Amino acid sequence: MAFITTDDGTTIFYKDHGSGQPVLFSHGWPLSADAWDAQMVFMGQHGFRVIAHDRRGHGRSDQAWDGNHMDRYADDLASLIDQLDLRDIILVGHSTGGGEITHYVGRHGTDRVAKMVLVGAVPPLMAKTDANPEGLPIDVFDGIRKGTFDDRSQFYRDLSLPFYGYNRDGATISEGVRESFWLQGMMGGLKGQLDCIHEFSEVDYTTGLRRIDVPTLFIHGDDDQIVPIGAAALKAHPLVPGSELKIYQGGAHGLTATEQDRFNADLLAFATADIRQAVAA
């Protein structure tokens, strides 16, 4: 069990395996580093050092009462990077994790970053506003708050169906994947998970996106029921010059699990691609 301690005294759990160029994974809500296990093994077997942490309030990290906001999440990530002295990093973020790595760049720059991969990611802004009519109404996120507060155990069980597209006709349902989603969610603390809903829904990540100056890959399913592609990757991709967008036809939000082999192959191909070619693309 490995931990770092941040400057506000919060302990953050992380996994760190292998050697080579570091690939640092940031998970979605309400999950933990365990959501990346298959990718960590796969990339580790292909010669990369793989690291993933539990966001504060999630998984095995401290269930802090304060600091459950994106500025602090990004600074926690910076603390992990600094304390492990990681350089030439490939940052990979899913959903809220995509917001986290984008906000990290917005606050700390790309001096230590080589490439970025945003998967089903929340940037630039999920909530509907006058300036963001493609977003989801705030009532949607209020419903998530209520479901999480009233009975998060049942809410997480129910949420796993659209998360992985298991509510679609003809879907092959893995009860194991659903149970893993529930278990990871229940490992975290209620206060931190409630606070995090605001961070993935109402924080505008446009400034961070505009600061990205490294090769970047967006991957998004066009049947993502949690983070609809129209308000996310289709708007974020043009804000990052030279970035690439891969759309998974019929892909769900949890495509790292439902299309694991395809995603792993795409991640490896991007990680090993010549950086100069990626920038010119």
Rank of each mutant, 00 (worst) to 15 (best):
Ala252Arg: 04
His253Pro: 07
Ala252Leu: 03
Gly192Asn: 11
Thr206Asn: 12
Asp195Gly: 04
Tyr205Arg: 01
Gln193Glu: 04
Ile247Trp: 01
Leu239Phe: 00
Arg211Met: 14
Asp224His: 08
Ala252Pro: 06
Val203Ser: 11
Gln225Ile: 10
Pro241Ala: 00
Gly250Ile: 00
Tyr248Arg: 08
His253Val: 11
Pro215Trp: 02
Ile226Ala: 13
Gly250Cys: 06
Lys246Asn: 08
Leu234Glu: 07
Val227Phe: 05
Asp204Gly: 06
Gly230Ser: 00
Leu190Ala: 12
Ile229Val: 03
Leu217Gln: 08
Gly242Thr: 00
His237Gln: 06
Val203Cys: 14
Phe218His: 12
Thr206Cys: 10
Val203Glu: 10
Ala231Lys: 13
Asp213Glu: 15
Gly208Ala: 11
Arg211Asn: 08
Leu217Tyr: 03
Val214Gly: 08
Val214Asp: 00
Pro215His: 05
Ile212Ala: 07
Gly221Ser: 09
Leu245Thr: 12
Asp223Ile: 07
Phe200Leu: 07
His220Tyr: 07
Leu239Ile: 01
Ile212Lys: 04
Asp223Val: 10
Ala232Val: 07
Ala252Asp: 10
Ser243Trp: 06
Thr216Trp: 12
Arg210Pro: 07
Ser243Phe: 04
Phe218Ser: 09
His220Asn: 03
Lys191Cys: 07
Ala232Ser: 13
Pro215Ile: 10
Thr256Met: 11
Cys196Met: 12
Asp213Gln: 15
Pro228Lys: 04
Gly230Ala: 00
His198Trp: 12
Ile219Val: 06
Val203Ala: 13
Pro228Asp: 01
Gly192Pro: 08
Lys235Glu: 00
Gln193Cys: 05
Gly242His: 05
Phe200Val: 09
Ala252Met: 11
Ile226Leu: 15
Ile229Thr: 02
Glu199Ala: 12
Val214Lys: 06
Gly250Glu: 00
Cys196Asp: 14
